[in-house]
């Protein structure tokens, strides 16, 4: 680099997540928070139901975030956020961002009623779900976000999960909220761009973030980013956005998907899968991705090169 020229950072420098938090090594959820707060900035209130982050933040009287944090009951991320928003509006503090921050259990399962309620009312909140695909905080039990084929402590290998992951993004889009998007810790620029976009929108915005969990996925902590990227490049977890429930945009189009096996084989939770089952998952991944391409109006059909 020439002297006098500096690299332009695309990610805000300010750190609002502090050192000393209680996350496991390689925790995707912690990166999620770090990136999200960089995008949101200081004028933010976090509202967190029971999830890994109710522990990660640290025990009383410590905290790991430089913004106010309201811990709430498991099923109340969205409605407590609605209350915080209403309180701020009533007091004229309209500029403060209100963020409901929940895991997949608190979003896909126990919190879906309150989330649907807030979305239908189009309350002015940002809802961010960091999805590690099971109840990891309680010790790896299946949720409705757990994918087909996965092992968890409540779906043991002899009885692995037989139902597909709930398509929550479509459920949220069906509420016709202004903005629904997926993102992934493997692509921080895209994630931060989406949080910033959500921040500017009046109404309910919903972000679904793929967030690897080494203890729950039985993966190596140093492979979190690799896995997060593979989730996207295999089309296992496409990153896209939906505006007003209708306009689909795929933010990273994968023209030549990598085999999903590359994503699966790095995780102990899929170790029991036979070639036949992997084939089945591969077919579902590609079919569903091609369906998404169609929804986004792209004249493209992809397949995995052998």
């Amino acid at each position: 680099m020439e002297r006098g020229k500096t690299m332009k950072l695309s990610i805000p420098e300010e750190e609002l997540v502090l050192q000393g938090h209680l996350a496991c090594q390689g925790c995707g959820a912690t990166l999620c928070m770090r990136y999200a707060l960089k995008a949101l900035g200081q004028n933010t209130i976090l509202d967190i139901p029971a999830c890994c982050w109710s522990v990660i933040d640290g025990p009383f009287p410590h905290t790991s975030v430089k913004v106010p944090l309201f811990h709430t009951a498991f099923e109340t991320a969205a409605c407590a956020a609605s209350g915080i928003r209403a309180g701020l509006d009533a007091l004229g503090r309209k500029e403060t961002n209100v963020v409901a921050w929940a895991g997949d259990g608190g979003t896909f399962d126990i919190g879906i009623q309150a989330l649907s309620g807030a979305a239908e009312r189009n309350d002015n909140i940002i809802y961010i779900c960091y999805d590690n695909e099971a109840y990891m905080n309680t010790g790896i039990q299946r949720s409705s976000a757990t994918p087909y084929g996965a092992w968890t402590t409540t779906t043991p290998v002899k009885h692995f999960k037989k139902m597909p992951k709930k398509d929550l993004v479509r459920i949220m889009a069906a509420h016709r909220i202004p903005y629904t998007a997926t993102a992934c810790v493997g692509y921080p620029e895209d994630f931060i761009k989406k949080v910033k976009k959500a921040k500017e929108i009046q109404g309910t915005t919903f972000l679904h973030i793929m967030s690897p969990c080494p203890p729950g996925w039985k993966s190596l902590p140093e492979e979190t980013i690799k896995l997060a990227k593979l989730a996207v490049t295999t089309c296992y977890f496409p990153i896209y956005e939906i505006e007003n429930g209708e306009k689909y945009t795929i933010n990273k189009v994968i023209k030549n998907p990598k085999p999903v096996k590359e994503f699966l084989e790095r995780q102990g939770r899929f170790r029991h899968l036979t070639e036949e089952l992997i084939e089945k998952i591969q077919k579902n991944v590609i079919d569903s991705y091609n369906g998404l391409l169609k929804k986004a109006g792209l004249d493209l059909e992809v397949h995995v090169k052998e």
Binding site: F70, C79, S82, G83, I84, A86, G87, A114, G117
Partner: peptide, 28 residues
């Protein structure tokens, strides 16, 4: 009455929303 009225989808959410609003300093 100059108040925000959240027409929640359940009583559980009603009290949760009241808790959130009260925590920012609003009378709920």
């Amino acid at each position: 009455l100059d108040a925000e009225f959240i027409k929640v989808e359940s009583e559980h959410s009603a009290m949760a929303a009241c808790c959130g609003a009260s925590a920012v300093g609003a009378r709920t």
